[in-house]
Amino acid sequence: MPVSLERLVTITGGVLEGDGNHLVDGVATLHDAQNHHVAALTNSRYKREVEKSSAGCILVAEKDAEGLDCNRILHPDPSLGFAMVSRYFNPPRAVVPGVADSAVIDVTATVATSAEIGANTVVGANAVIGEGVYIGPGCMILDNAIVGESSRLIANVTLCEGVEIGTHCLLHPGAVIGSDGFGFANEAGKWLKVPQIGRVVVGNLVEIGANTSIDRGSLRDTVIGDGVKLDNQIQIAHNVVIGAHTAIAGLVGIAGSTTIGSHCTIAGEAGIVGHLQIGDYCHIGARAMVTRSLKERSNVSGGVPAVESGLWRRMIARLRRIDAMADRISALEKMKK
């Protein structure tokens, strides 16, 4: 439904410059936007794209707005403003209460009347499905699992026994929550399985990407804090604790009993060994291998092992000069001869 820019700026915040009565009904890139779209300039390098854009309104930082001749919303963080606009125009589809004919619901399970249960879903004994929950097709909600209010499991998600999902969470296809942790004891050269008797407890407003696996605790619970965002194909081992509002990119592996603080960012393919303490507000770069605990606000990059980012950049700069240095050493050796 079209909305005026005057109304839109009350959603995004910021300052509107231009025609407040202009109507928009969606979002697009600067390149693709038409007169009824909102676009955003999130990087000063693309300012020339604004001049060629047909967008009906552009979200832009005040420092980049000079010389622009278009409807615009001056925003301290255009990326955030654009996200707000996109969420406004693209809400999730409404939950349609009911249970598909092919779903199997244990007689001891509790399913809210406002929940939607998709085709071929199984809900086990004493499981609890909260108000406004969406369970898509092919999901497995095993015994004693809990799904909190307004959470969504898109399709083929597995919640193993006793898993607890908070409110307003989003779990993408193929996620497996609460499978056994990798726990074995060596008995005369053979591996003896150690029962994994903890749970996985997921907080509120958590998003878990496709094919991500979170193992149940061996004794204590594996815990994912409120607001955590997990990308696709992440492995989180038993007893791990992840603090609130930490974001982790794809293919990260976190070994058992590591605690990660709040508001951390972990880039793709990073690895973190077990039994570490990662402080709040840390950043771990792509493909970094973290083998030691990190203090609050640490910033590490590189390969094996990860080191402080500034040191890593200096090391790389020196590596790039290594051929020239070798030539100079060779020349000096010849002079000595």
Rank of each mutant, 00 (worst) to 15 (best):
P305S: 07
A109K: 12
R297V: 00
W312C: 03
G303V: 06
A317Q: 12
A109V: 12
V290C: 10
E62F: 00
P195H: 09
D215T: 01
G166S: 13
L142Y: 11
S309Q: 13
H283N: 03
A247E: 05
L142S: 14
R216S: 05
S79I: 08
A317C: 07
H263Q: 13
R321G: 15
V60E: 01
V96Q: 15
Q277I: 09
F182L: 09
G268K: 02
V240D: 08
L311E: 15
E269F: 02
E17Q: 15
R297D: 06
V128P: 00
I266E: 05
A188W: 04
Y281Q: 11
S218V: 07
I154F: 12
V104W: 06
T121F: 04
R93E: 00
G302C: 11
H75D: 05
A210D: 11
V206R: 05
R7V: 01
E296V: 11
D280Q: 02
V95W: 03
T42K: 10
G124A: 10
R93N: 02
V202R: 01
H238W: 07
R199S: 09
S86R: 09
A288M: 09
I105C: 11
I316Q: 15
V15T: 15
S44G: 14
G250Q: 02
A331G: 10
G136L: 11
L68A: 03
R93W: 00
A175G: 11
Q235T: 00
P137E: 15
P97L: 01
A55W: 02
R216V: 02
Q233Y: 02
N299E: 12
I284F: 05
I236D: 01
A112M: 05
H238Y: 13
R287V: 00
A28R: 14
D226W: 02
G227Q: 13
S151F: 01
A249M: 02
Y88L: 04
N204R: 04
A210L: 11
I117R: 02
S150V: 00
A127L: 05
E207V: 05
L16P: 03
N21E: 14
E66W: 02
P78T: 06
V104L: 06
A255K: 03
G56Y: 08
N35M: 08
G67M: 09
L171D: 06
G174S: 12
L41V: 10
T29Q: 08
L8I: 10
A33Y: 03
D77C: 10
A324R: 14
I11E: 15
G261Y: 00
L332A: 15
S330H: 13
A155I: 07
